[in-house]
Simulated scan of single mutants.
Amino acid sequence: MKLALFDDHRLGVVTGETVTDVTGALPWPHEADPLTAGWWRRLCRDFAAVRPALEEAAAAGSAVPVAEVRLLAPALNPSKIVACASNYAAHVEEMHGVQERTLGKVESWMMNFDVFLKAPSSISGPRDAIVLPAAEVAAGHEIHHESELVIVIGRGGKDIPEDDALAHVFGYTLGLDMTVRSTGDRSRRKSHDTFSPVGPWITTADEATDPAAFQIDLIVNGDDHRQHVTTKELLTPVPAIVSYASRVMTLVPGDLIFTGAPPGVGPIRPGDLIDTSISGIGAMRLTVRS
């Protein structure tokens, strides 16, 4: 099943190019305010129990074209955004050159897999603009795109065994981990507003089945095809990511985990148009402005 948030944080089932409002099928109150939307975490945690009602509502409801609604980020006030660093071998290799150019040296510790946090306030939707911070642009810092598979946590937990990790995943979506290439902590450089566009919806884990079978692509300005990779190339695959992150911090329903940047990262500038997609999930077209 593909689940979208749209308009006033309504819940929709996406079929092809249409979406059907199934908000009324939820067995608990729907609170449109994203800061108090506990219903979303309950959906992430208890999806298996409510899926039959959502399917019935989708079959009986009136579908409308996706193009006619305002798609929102398929995430409501997550407790945290966890992000993975150095999780594709070719990206680790390319970062040596990127850091030599932008920092004048290679930070060897940054070439090892690990996780860090991004601010939830950096989340934006699949049709929102990416806004480049004026101070970073004025300082001459490059700002790069990183198109990534994003895990949405369902049943959370602490110290999750790797062989049980996929049972804790609600689904997957597409995200961009926007990054200022400068000195300083990753979390600061990646947490500006609009630096975590996600969407266009969630493909639930039962439909996605194999998280190693996704293909990621990113094209800038229509003809500059920069990123093209499959998630089977992840150095630390999805089950191991979930398990590792849960050993560091308790994962909560609705949390997001960015799985790491594929090779092909590069700078973006005001006026650029970014087309990014993941097979089996969907696509986003995002403009860049200052």
Rank of each mutant, 00 (worst) to 15 (best):
D114R: 15
I274H: 04
S279K: 08
L286P: 04
D164F: 13
L174F: 01
D7R: 01
I278N: 04
H91A: 09
R155G: 05
S246Y: 11
T209Q: 12
L273Y: 03
R247G: 15
M284W: 00
H168I: 05
E17H: 09
G199C: 00
A167V: 01
D164S: 14
V198F: 02
E56A: 14
F214A: 08
N221W: 06
G157H: 10
M111K: 15
F6A: 05
I241F: 09
H141Y: 11
R70K: 08
E146P: 06
L11F: 03
R186V: 13
I241Y: 07
A119H: 15
L273W: 10
G140P: 09
A119Q: 12
T36Q: 15
M249C: 09
V98C: 04
P74D: 01
P161E: 06
M1P: 03
A85V: 13
H141E: 08
G184C: 11
S124A: 09
S279E: 13
A32F: 01
P211E: 10
P253N: 05
L176Y: 01
I219E: 11
A25P: 02
G222Q: 05
I81H: 02
D255H: 10
P78H: 08
L72Y: 03
S121T: 15
I123V: 12
D255Y: 12
H145M: 02
I81R: 03
A57V: 00
D33R: 10
K105H: 15
P29Q: 07
T23H: 01
Q215N: 15
R41G: 11
P270Y: 08
D7K: 00
I81Y: 03
D177R: 07
G61Q: 04
T173V: 01
L174N: 04
V13Y: 05
A119I: 10
V14P: 01
W28R: 01
P120A: 10
T209L: 14
Q215I: 12
W39C: 00
G260D: 07
L43C: 09
G175M: 06
D275M: 08
H9C: 14
L26R: 02
P211F: 09
W39G: 03
G266E: 10
R41D: 08
V220F: 04
G24H: 00
G282T: 00
S182R: 10
E93M: 09
N221M: 07
D33E: 14
